[in-house]
């Protein structure tokens, strides 16, 4: 049970879970749409990549590892693009960024 592979995988999965929780914390606590995108866009991508790499380490060398790599690689590309698309749509339709001192939006 406590082989070195399991320990490394557990550490990676714990790190990924930590970043996912902080991403949701930012999503709930930040005052404005753009700042929330800061938190979720970055933390979710990193959290997801760490968890999938942890699963790959645990899985060893097999066909599933290649599928997990494709999943991780696709998310690593797709999440920032999706965040950018939704941010551009919000900015072009006139959603003003939050300034310090304004109330939460």
């Amino acid at each position: 049970m406590f082989s070195i592979i399991n320990i490394i995988a557990t550490i990676l999965i714990a790190g990924g879970a930590f970043f996912m929780v902080t991403g949701v914390l930012g999503l709930l606590r930040f005052p404005d749409f753009y700042t929330r995108l800061h938190a979720t866009g970055k933390c979710d991508t990193l959290g997801e990549v760490l968890v999938i790499v942890g699963c790959m380490v645990y899985q060893g060398w097999s066909f599933i590892t290649i599928k997990l790599f494709f999943l991780m690689f696709f998310i690593f590309l797709a999440n920032p693009v999706g965040t950018h698309a939704i941010m551009k749509a919000a900015y072009l339709t006139g959603l003003k960024p939050w300034k310090k001192g304004e109330e939460r939006r």
């Binding site: 999503l27 749409f33 929330r36 979720t40 939704i86 749509a89 959603l95």
Partner: peptide, 11 residues
């Protein structure tokens, strides 16, 4: 706003 909802669904 609707943009917060779309961002949350993405998350």
């Amino acid at each position: 706003g609707v943009f917060n909802q779309v961002a949350a669904v993405n998350v």
